[in-house]
């Protein structure tokens, strides 16, 4: 059977880890130890005959090379923030030199005009469609449904359903709107925003590690996977310290770049 895999291609927040400007202990560790590094957040659904991207972070090229992805069939964006769309231009030469036809790009409705302004020369690279909240898109034996997230601008998370699993991917959100929480109740995998460690500087846009764990408990997720993690703020942390924070939460995992989940 042709099973799909959900790959967390990037698990870091906006500055990435290490950040070139930062010498906190988390960045120091990430410089010395590649496995502690976190590229900007993105994900890929990969199967034998299809690859779907969720977000195109500025690190996209390196992520695709690392995950040995050479074909891209669809792109969904959660929202129009640079750390989630900044790698769109990386797909230009893939389309021009190999694919030879535009890639379907599903954008937030309010981002379509921003895309046209930001990338006037990429119109021929993408076939732009605006996704609609709660409308499902079907690919092979999977469905993908954008659901509202709580973020500073119009933002979706995606509920992915296969025959065996339900997976919710919400890299940028502060809790979930009631109707979304209901829709993702009892998911097998909740992959969610855990930007902050310690105080949450932006409680209306992001979550802290502990808030993300609480959200997983609230929606009764079988496993909660923490992503979009900064290692810098508000309290820098090392891998060991993160493990200490997660101790006693056997169903909570810290995402890492390249983590794969069977759908």
């Amino acid at each position: 059977m042709n099973k799909s895999t959900f790959i967390i291609s990037g698990s870091g927040a906006g500055p990435g880890a290490p950040s070139f400007f930062c010498d906190c202990k988390g960045c120091v560790e990430a410089r010395e130890n590649q496995t502690a590094a976190r590229t900007r957040s993105g994900a890929i659904i990969s199967s034998a005959n299809r690859n779907i991207l969720f977000d195109t972070p500025p690190d996209l090229r390196a992520q695709l090379i690392r995950e040995k992805v050479s074909i891209i069939d669809q792109v969904f964006l959660t929202h129009w923030h640079y750390d989630h769309f900044g790698g769109l231009g990386e797909l230009e030469y893939y389309v021009k030199l190999k694919r030879k036809k535009p890639i379907p790009l599903y954008l937030p409705p309010t981002a379509v005009e921003q895309f046209r302004r930001a990338f006037p020369d990429l119109e021929e690279i993408f076939e732009v469609t605006s996704w609609k909240f709660n409308e499902s898109y079907f690919f092979d034996k999977l469905s993908i449904t954008p659901l509202p997230a709580n973020h500073s601008i119009e933002t979706a998370g995606f509920l992915v359903k296969s025959a065996e699993n339900r997976l919710a991917y919400f890299p940028d959100t502060a809790g979930l709107p009631d109707e979304t929480a209901q829709a993702v109740k009892n998911v097998d995998w909740l992959i969610c925003d855990a930007t902050f460690h310690g105080d949450n500087w932006f409680p209306h846009s992001h979550m802290s590690v502990l808030e993300a764990i609480d959200l997983g408990r609230e929606v009764n997720a079988r496993h909660t996977v923490l992503t979009h993690m900064s290692v810098h703020y508000s309290q820098p942390f090392t891998t060991l310290e993160l493990a200490e924070t997660l101790s006693g939460h056997p169903h909570v995992l810290a995402a890492y770049d390249g983590m794969q989940i069977k759908l």
Partner: peptide
């Protein structure tokens, strides 16, 4: 305990 839990988790 912290370390072994982390190894077991993933």
């Amino acid at each position: 305990r912290v370390l072994i839990e982390e190894l077991l988790r993933q």
